[in-house]
Design a protein around this nucleic acid. Sequence first.
DNA 1: ACTCTCGCTTGATCAAAATCAAGCGTGTGC
DNA 2: GCACACGCTTGATTTTGATCAAGCGAGAGT
Lengths: 258, 258
Amino acid sequence: MPIRNTETSRVRNIPLFRGANDSAFAMALSGAFLQRFPAGTTLLMEGDSVDFLYILLEGAVELGASWKSKDTTLAIIRPISTFILAAVVLDSDALMSASTLERSEILMVPGESLRRAMKSDANFCFAVSEELAGCYRGLVRSVKNHKLRDSTERLANYLLTQRARQGGKDTILLPHEKRVLASLLGMTPENLSRAFAKLSAQGVSVDGVQVQLGKIPALERLARPSPLIDNHYAQPKNELGESHIERGKGLLDGVAAL
Amino acid sequence: MPIRNTETSRVRNIPLFRGANDSAFAMALSGAFLQRFPAGTTLLMEGDSVDFLYILLEGAVELGASWKSKDTTLAIIRPISTFILAAVVLDSDALMSASTLERSEILMVPGESLRRAMKSDANFCFAVSEELAGCYRGLVRSVKNHKLRDSTERLANYLLTQRARQGGKDTILLPHEKRVLASLLGMTPENLSRAFAKLSAQGVSVDGVQVQLGKIPALERLARPSPLIDNHYAQPKNELGESHIERGKGLLDGVAAL
DNA sequence: ACTCTCGCTTGATCAAAATCAAGCGTGTGC
DNA sequence: GCACACGCTTGATTTTGATCAAGCGAGAGT
């Protein structure tokens, strides 16, 4: 599908492109096209060579990986976010697979165009570096979350993060199927159920996708959220790893991953 | 300590600076200085603001993190490598602490100089992006390693990676104390001992820092190393996460982390 | 030589999480 | 309406890893 004005203007204002000069922006998007995918479509498999930067405009995309018949979710991307940037910059193979969780609308930007634009405009290139640095730090948070907390603590922090993103109200909606959430949090669906059960002591009660957080102080006492692991303060756009994303200093639209 | 010619020329050739033009290189290193630290020195704590890019010229540095009285090692840096780059690019706080494992020699480059240099030279800026992308992908490998493998499998892969880096001989030397190794692999020292014991079935025998790998095929059958997780093919310079680092396409000197 | 310390190992116990196996409830298709 | 599939839960069991508690052995300081 040819790229239209509506799309370019939407994308022009994300942090990645905002500081680019017009000619670099045009160069980056030369050859870009818009594509729609139904839910459950595999966009990319681990090991595939990566020819495009993906920019998710609508929908949701799961980044995952597998080994020896196990698999896991590494991140869930929400609009407007890029993914697979690192592989594009290095012109190398994908380390994660990507598939749509919902019907999605994706802008596909040729990697070669993007790299040329970076080399032609230091400000744009700097924005790419900021973006990558933010992704890196999101992953650092994710590793810390996994190595330092047990599964109940991860869930408790996930709930508090969602609360902050969904406006601070005491009842939140789970944005994904529980099995996807379990995989993102690094546990089995069975254990996710049990972790929810444990958190009833902290006033958490689940009804389908709705979760009531009855006793926030108790939940916080258990979760002990930390700005060095959790990203409560970011805008409610992305969920990377256990849902932490970060933008250059005081920012703004989330843009994430790979 | 003032920076001398020997140091600038050593650093000039790492991938990060190789493509920079002379004026950007000079700008980046303006205000840089060399510092020596004894083993066990804390260079940076989590949450500290980061004013310098660190370039490790000699020694070894551990990057770690802690939460609720637990702590863990996220990476071990070997020369010549940078660390804390992402925080410098974003001019933000450290997400990891850094401390020397051995007496170390570190070139400290002011963050502001580095950012100015990036904005003045798109090629240098591109190299920074490549560096960050490599760090990012190293962390992705690390997350996969932790979420998909159990501790014995992680150890088995670690041993095979070390073998590849130490020249492919069937006896390798552990480069760190076992307690550090355990923390890097995400387990307790007790469990590291037991994991070694389990691997005796695969021909692994330990004597102090020396490890004999008796039955490589059996070990590989258990470890199932994968180019999408392990970085056997990189140069033997770095150990990030479980020891995977990656450089832009066909590269070279390792440079890593944060 | 002799303790002392320290890093590592070993064993016993405990806690956390994965796995196996039903069951339950809702929604779909026939 | 009825059967079926599917996502989720619950319980029982096993496996994995953490914790607690000794012990062992090499090296450092006296």
